[in-house]
Design a protein around this nucleic acid. Structure first.
Lengths: 249, 249
DNA sequence: CAAGTAAATTGGTAAGACCAATTCATTGAT
DNA sequence: ATCAATGAATTGGTCTTACCAATTTACTTG
């Protein structure tokens, strides 16, 4: 009885609608392109009013789960990472701690991807990574292009893992990462010594993949991240001191 | 004129409501914790009906932009990546034909989380992980309870990272894997040697966290996964042979 | 059979009504 | 004067009904 009561308290109309979609999508009963029951019919089926159904469905549209066509119907959407754009913009308008946390997820994905890349990368993958390494080196003085090359270097590594789950998750964070890369370059790339250290770090990462050594690649990539963290830390110190520190060490 | 027409065509009621919130949040006119104009008043202010306003606001709630309290009002929320859990599950569910691949993503998250756990776990975290290790050992002969203890052991490690991004992604994948019954394939083993190896592997993982050694923890966890893979491989061989192999090695 | 028109279907939006939860104002007791 | 209880007001939650806009389907005509 208590169990039944709890179940009722949790499954209000709104939740029933959400569950209807989640269950069917995850179970595969509703696939990309499938048409959903018409609103009026579905509202009746779920014993809710149409406005409530529409509220929930509007939410699912904005989360990218559904596509609606007036006069035609509602369809299951193909996942589209662009829906995350507003979310990340919202994050950026607030404090930055969420972004630092997303970097943890980024590292997780990249370090696993680079291990897989050591096993799975083909000639085209290696050529692409190498090419972006070259572009990265050539665009060190241009924050925009350099940031892009840096990002693409990393994304090529993830792509070389040939893991759709990893590339999908990485793609979801892509926009945020791109902004981060550009921002970082603006604040850290004026010292030739720093530039050299960074170029070397990227090169070591690439060579580890070529050498097909997962542990080394993982370690090199983490070292590369650690350098980035250190540079950011120094950059902050520099900012707060307000002095153009000529001497790093 | 054309410009004005285009502007009108784009700014329907729904878009006006979205813009109202986006503009004010991004400009800082509405900050975390600020109360929003009441629904009826805002609907009038924006020249839309209340149901339409509610549709949009429901969306913004589900995207994590707003918090609502019945009887009190609607407030600007603090960014929280947990709202994206369903989105990630949705994304990954569309790659469901390669579940082994999702296991790679799960491994990525766990290995990064265990590194963070070595730095961030508090006493309560360690006690929880240790407790689930104990339960896991006690329930080795029960597939249901043993499976659950195994899962909770791992989830406690991820929780001990105190990273919302990682725990969110882990949760999204866990839900997917649960529905696919992948984890149920790990059957209980009756060979005492195998049992000992498994228990030892879990214990080593736990001790690495206690020792606060990220590299060792990462390595131990990967070793543990490799053992699991090998056992699964043998399980499949056994299944297809249809022989109760008394002698494993 | 093809093209055009009308009807039906489906999504888009609103007004009005009523219920549920919280907050604020008023009243009564100490 | 202060505090607690009660009632009213406010705000969100949900529904019915009605009508408009866009698309699809059915029917009619050449």
């Amino acid at each position: 009885m208590n169990e039944g009561l709890e179940s009722d308290a949790r499954q209000n109309g709104s939740d029933r609608v959400v569950s209807y979609f989640k269950d069917r999508i995850l179970k595969g009963d509703l696939k990309v392109g499938d048409r959903v029951m018409p609103e009026r019919e579905l509202a009746q089926h779920l014993d809710v009013g149409r406005p409530l159904l529409r509220e929930v469905m509007k939410s699912l549209v904005m989360l990218g789960f559904l596509n609606v066509r007036q006069g035609s119907g509602t369809y299951i959407a193909k996942a589209d990472i662009r829906v995350l754009s507003d979310f990340f913009t919202f994050c950026l308008s607030q404090e930055q701690d969420v972004l630092e946390d997303v970097m943890q997820a980024r590292m997780a994905i990249e370090c696993q991807a680079i291990r897989l890349a050591c096993e799975r990368a083909n000639e085209a993958d290696l050529a692409r990574i190498g090419q972006w390494l070259g572009t990265l080196i050539d665009t060190l003085t241009d924050p925009e292009a350099g940031g892009r090359a840096d990002f693409m270097f990393h994304q090529s590594i993830v792509a070389a893992s040939h893991s759709r789950a990893l590339t999908t998750l990485y793609g979801a964070m892509a926009e945020l990462l791109q902004r981060s890369h550009v921002q970082r370059r603006v604040t850290t790339y004026r010292n030739p010594e720093i530039v050299r250290v960074l170029v070397d770090a990227h090169r070591e990462v690439f060579l580890s993949i070529v050498a097909k050594d997962p542990d080394q690649a993982d370690r090199r990539l983490r070292d590369h991240f650690a350098i980035g963290d250190e540079l950011r830390r120094r950059s902050l110190i520099e900012t707060y001191r307000g002095a153009p520190a000529k001497q790093i060490n």
